[in-house]
Design a binder for these strands. Structure first.
Length: 583
RNA sequence: GCGCGGUUGGUCCAGUGGUAGGACAUUAGCUUCCCAAGCUAAUAGCCCGGGUUCAAUUCCCGGACCGCGCACCA
């Protein structure tokens, strides 16, 4: 079976069995939007729960849930208004679209064409007689399209304030930093997670749910002290990883570096130990939810590819149809985001770092007697105070005599020292305000879901009949167990329904099915990836046991109904293997 | 956004200037003591708009959507 065929079969299966499908198709459909069906929504929820458990709960991080619409100034500060705004110019000859700002920068002395207004760029194109990079046709007179990847909207009625649907969830965390740091009791490091939707008005959505206009991200923003030397790597240093670092990419000979997190951090391949830590945690987590590690790697961003503020950046990639797709990004963003929001908002986006040993400094200050300076200098009194303050800092000795001399507008004035309130005090400085740095692991949930389905897709033969099944991990499988009566029979059906009800009460995702023969029902569950099926037969009515059948092996065991909920819960949690069960 | 190809029951496809057929799936009944079996029946479809025509699912034009290539993917 070719990879291409797998992808087509998977899309067909996803539609037929309720994993995902094009939205609004009754109205002709709309590009780049997908609805997750009953199975897909459950799988997505399970993946999000697993992510939350690993990256929020286990790590001791805080989860928040911010709005998807934010006002324009947020995106002015974050840089998205500029960088998500493309100037496209279309060639009248060959019809290809190009970035007008790039053409201008490449062929003229203008260096930052992106920041110029569109009419000006159009003028430059005409003035320099710039041509299409593809076919050489002249571009003068062609209109430049302003294309912003962010969805714009208005907040409130009337002269509403402009807002945008967030193009990434991260800003919802960054803008709330001043409050979030309070919840973290002003101590670094701390992490904040968010699982939510983000929106990008893609020019050309493609390839099923891999590139859509509305998608779900699971992001962690981990705030560290800029001088932080990194985490304890002992829990991840032995994790084997496949790294497609800059060197391998430049060699372009298909090589990949097989190493461990510990080694890669030690030899500097992974520049930042925090990034290394999250790569290790993520790889193990990906494996636990069913990503095939033979079709998984970490790829380092090339210098020209990463954002200017990111010092080291890696993507997690999975292989689909022979292509590598990005399913997560890991970036050291420095203090870029918090600095920008501090600048844009005027709020303080810092944490107070106490020194190990408080520093004591001597400070010379003045506390002038205004009842003297006021009458004496009138409107110039304020300027006199400023001059005294400056002088206290720059020249304490000036205050040693009876009078202190200051210059004001070229004139010299003498002021009695006793009226200046001059004093030298010891002051203790306990620490300083610092802007934390941010490590950002950012996961694409939809692409993960697609990868998990793709990697789970399997075909085999059972008793001479072809079978399609999804080898989903029990922890994330949307339906965990199917319950069937062996055949049409009131007693069997009643017992089977009872068992289904009990298992649901125990918190398991159960489906009941009495339609068609038993084999057909097994195949139905195989195709949606249900890991276990339970069949009630006549023996069950007598001795209280049922057949439990495992999806991947199709092996069966007879197990007592009394322990069923407990046994299944253990199977789901991975505490026990099916082969190891007595029965 | 450009180019090429495509769009017919739930799914995958065939086909036609006189409004359609198969396979699988689904539902009901029969059968069936563990892997898509069999029999009977039922449900269900020509992407949207305009044009040509006595008549358009079919031909033409435009649009939407899907796939692939180019571009884009901070």
């Amino acid at each position: 079976m070719s990879e291409q065929a797998t992808s087509q079969k998977l899309t067909e299966l996803a539609k037929r069995r309720g994993y995902f499908f094009q939205s609004s198709s009754a109205y002709g459909g709309v590009g780049g939007f997908y609805t997750f069906g009953p199975q897909g929504a459950a799988l997505k929820g399970n993946l999000e729960d697993a992510w939350r458990e690993r990256f929020a709960v286990s790590e001791g991080n805080m989860e928040i849930d911010a709005p998807t619409i934010m006002p324009e100034p947020v995106f002015e500060s974050s840089g998205h208004l500029d960088t998500f705004d493309d100037m496209l110019i279309e060639c009248p000859e060959c019809g290809e679209s190009h970035r007008a700002d790039h053409i201008v920068e490449d062929n003229t002395e203008y260096e930052d064409a992106e920041s110029l207004p569109i009419p000006e760029v159009e003028e430059i194109v005409a003035e320099y007689e710039l041509v299409c990079p593809s076919c050489g046709a002249g571009l003068a007179g062609q209109a430049i399209d302003d294309f912003n990847l962010m969805f714009a909207t208005n907040i409130g009625p009337g002269d509403a304030q402009p807002g945008y649907l967030r193009p990434e969830t991260a800003q919802g965390i960054f803008v709330e930093f001043p409050r979030l740091k309070e919840y973290a009791r002003n101590t670094l490091p701390f992490g904040v997670t968010q699982i939510g939707r983000a929106y990008r008005n893609e020019i050309s959505p493609r390839r099923s749910i891999i590139r859509t206009r509305e998608f779900t991200q699971a992001e962690l923003e981990y705030f560290i002290d800029p001088e932080d030397e990194g985490p304890d790597l002992s829990s991840v240093e032995d994790v084997s990883v496949r790294l497609y670092a800059v060197g391998e990419q430049q060699a372009d000979d298909g090589s990949i570096r097989e190493t461990t997190i510990g080694e890669a951090v030690a030899d500097g391949t992974i520049a930042d130990p925090w990034v290394g830590y999250f790569l290790g945690v993520s790889q193990e987590w990906y494996a636990s939810v069913g990503v095939d590690m033979d079709r998984f790697r970490f790829r380092q961003h090339l210098a020209g590819e990463r954002a200017h503020y990111a010092s080291d950046c890696w993507d997690a990639e999975s292989e689909i149809d022979g292509n590598w797709i990005e399913i997560a990004g890991f970036a050291h963003r420095g203090d870029y985001d918090l600095s920008k929001h501090a600048e844009g908002s005027g709020d303080r986006f810092t944490v107070f770092r106490q020194y190990d040993d408080p520093q004591t400094v001597e400070r010379a200050t003045v506390d002038p007697d205004m009842s003297y300076l006021g009458p004496e200098f009138g409107g110039d009194a304020g300027a006199v105070v400023d001059a005294l303050e400056d002088l206290a800092v720059s020249d304490r000795e000036a205050f040693e005599g009876e009078h202190v001399e200051i210059e004001l507008a070229g004139e010299s004035h003498e002021i009695p020292v006793e009226k200046t309130g001059f004093s030298v005090d010891e002051e203790t400085i306990a620490g300083e305000h610092i802007i934390p740095h941010v490590i950002e692991p950012s996961f694409g949930v939809d692409r993960l879901l697609y990868t998990v389905l793709h990697h789970a897709y399997a075909e085999d033969e059972v008793a001479g009949e072809e079978r399609t099944y999804l080898e989903l991990e029990p922890e994330v499988a949307p339906t965990f167990v199917g319950v069937f009566p062996l055949q049409s029979d009131d007693d069997l059906e009643a017992t089977a329904r009872e068992i289904a009800t009990e298992l649901r009460a125990a918190g398991l995702s159960v489906t009941y099915d009495d339609s068609g023969n038993i084999g057909r029902r097994y195949r139905r569950q195989d195709e949606v990836g249900t890991p276990f099926c339970i069949t009630v037969d006549y023996e069950s009515l007598e001795d209280g046991t049922v057949t439990v059948r495992e999806r991947d092996s199709t092996a069966q065991k007879r197990l007592p109904v009394d322990d069923l909920a407990e046994t299944l819960a253990a199977l789901r949690a991975g505490d026990v293997a099916f082969e190891a069960l007595e029965g």
